[in-house]
Computed example of a mutant assay.
Amino acid sequence: MPKVTFHKAGEVHEGEVPEKGNLVVRAGIRKYPWPHLRYGCGMGKCGKCACRVLAGGDALPEPNWKEVKQLGERISEGYRLMCQLWLEHDITLEQDAA
């Protein structure tokens, strides 16, 4: 099971998700260990679930068209939309406090 380390507002939360688990889906069904993840539509349209990948980004697929449209230049800063990622490897993320 992939280990997720999540940083937000000076707090660090750790937990595991099932293989090929999606953090936004897990949050929506209350099976996600960190209630601090900000998310909205779950379809790549609102951008609320954007997180900066601090570690483990090399194991992720290339950003899809929804991420490119929503995040633009932020992709080069390491941002990804969590609703668009199905995790298969350990990852460390940071979400802006706002």
Score class of each variant (00 low, 15 high):
Gly57Tyr: 10
Glu62Asn: 10
Pro35Cys: 07
Ala55Gly: 03
Glu62Leu: 15
Val53Met: 01
Leu54Ala: 05
Pro35His: 12
Gly56Lys: 04
Trp65Gly: 02
Gln70Ala: 02
Glu73Thr: 13
Gly47Asn: 05
Gly47Pro: 07
Arg74Pro: 06
Gly72Tyr: 02
Glu67Met: 05
Ser76Thr: 13
Lys69Met: 03
Glu67Gln: 04
Lys69Asn: 05
Cys41Tyr: 09
Gly28Ala: 08
Leu54Trp: 00
Ile75Asp: 02
Arg52Asp: 02
Glu73Pro: 09
Ala50Gly: 12
Arg74Met: 15
Gly78Asp: 07
Ser76Arg: 13
Ala59Met: 15
Glu77Trp: 06
Lys48Glu: 15
Asn64Pro: 09
Leu71Asp: 05
Tyr32Val: 07
Arg30Asn: 11
Trp65Asn: 07
Glu73Leu: 12
Leu54Asp: 02
Arg30Val: 10
Ile75Lys: 06
Glu67Leu: 01
Cys46Trp: 01
Cys51Ser: 14
Tyr39Trp: 07
Cys51His: 08
Ile29Ser: 07
Lys66Ala: 08
Ile29Trp: 11
Cys41Gln: 08
Lys66Ile: 15
Pro61Phe: 08
Ile29Cys: 13
Leu60Trp: 09
Cys49Asp: 09
Met43Ile: 12
Tyr39Arg: 14
Glu67Arg: 02
Lys48Ala: 14
Gly40Glu: 12
Gly56Ser: 04
Gly42Val: 09
Pro63Val: 13
Pro35Thr: 12
Ala55Pro: 04
Arg30Trp: 09
Gly57Val: 11
Gly47Ala: 15
Lys31Ala: 08
Lys45Gly: 09
Gly56Tyr: 01
Gly57Met: 11
Tyr32Ala: 07
Lys31Val: 00
Pro33Met: 07
Arg38Lys: 07
Arg38Thr: 05
Lys48Trp: 11
Asp58Thr: 05
Ala55Trp: 03
Leu54Ser: 03
Glu77Tyr: 12
Trp65Gln: 11
Gly44Lys: 01
Gly47Ile: 10
Ala59Ser: 15
Ala55Phe: 11
Lys48Arg: 15
Met43Ala: 14
Trp34Cys: 14
Val53Ala: 03
Pro33Val: 04
Gly72Met: 03
His36Tyr: 08
Gly47Asp: 00
Lys66Arg: 15
Glu77Pro: 06
Lys31Gln: 14
Ala55Gln: 15
Leu37Glu: 08
Gly44Arg: 00
Leu37Val: 13
Glu67Gly: 01
Gly44Val: 01
Cys51Pro: 08
Asp58Gly: 14
Glu62Pro: 11
Leu71Pro: 06
Pro63Thr: 08
Leu54Met: 11
Ile29Phe: 10
Ile29Gly: 00
Cys51Arg: 04
Lys31Glu: 08
Val53His: 02
Glu77Met: 15
Pro63Glu: 06
Cys41Arg: 05
Cys41Pro: 10
Glu77Thr: 06
Gly78Trp: 04
Glu67Ser: 01
Glu62Val: 14
Glu62Trp: 04
Leu60Phe: 05
Cys41Glu: 12
Glu73Asn: 08
Pro33Asn: 07
Val68Ala: 03
Gly40Ser: 13
Leu71Ile: 07
Gly44Ile: 02
Arg38Gln: 04
Asp58Val: 01
Tyr32Gly: 07
Asp58Ala: 10
Ala50His: 13
Val53Tyr: 00
Pro63Ile: 12
Arg30Ser: 12
Val68Pro: 00
Gly42Leu: 04
Leu60Tyr: 08
Pro33Gly: 01
Gly28Glu: 06
Gly72Trp: 02
